[in-house]
């Protein structure tokens, strides 16, 4: 079991890593950055999967199903639309 402090340290360090990289992203790519990070925040999909250990219609499972739908829209839609946008940026 990972202790809570380690998790918190991980969170803080990840914010710093994110900060360092993202400040280098040019304004031209800010919209794809938003839709791309949007897709990444769909990582809640992992949480949704974990909350559906069986297919009996319990309250938790039904909540999990809706979480899974939302997170999947986020992931699939986010990555696809980012790819579509980035294809437009190709040099002519």
């Amino acid at each position: 079991m990972i202790d809570l402090f380690s998790l918190f340290a991980l969170f803080v360090l990840a914010i710093f890593v994110g900060y360092e990289i993202i400040t280098k992203i040019p304004p031209t790519l800010h919209t794809p950055l938003m839709s791309g990070t949007n897709a990444i925040s769909g990582i809640a999909i992992v949480g949704a999967l974990l909350s559906i250990p069986h297919s009996t219609p319990t309250v938790a499972n039904i909540l999990g199903l809706f979480a899974l739908i939302m997170a999947t829209i986020n992931v699939v839609g986010g990555f696809m639309v980012t790819d579509r946008m980035l294809s437009m940026f190709k040099k002519k």
Binding site: M1, I2, L4, L7, L10, F11, V12, A14, I15, F16, V17, G18, Y19, I22, T23, H30, L33, M34, T37, N38, I40, S41, I43, A44, V46, G47, L50
Partner: peptide, 24 residues
């Protein structure tokens, strides 16, 4: 949610997106 489930990948990715949004 990552803290709720004690799940590292949720915490790291969530933090990255959080940082990105704050910068923008």
């Amino acid at each position: 949610t990552g803290f709720v489930l004690k799940n590292t990948v949720l915490i790291i990715s969530g933090a990255l997106v959080g940082a990105s949004g704050i910068i923008l």
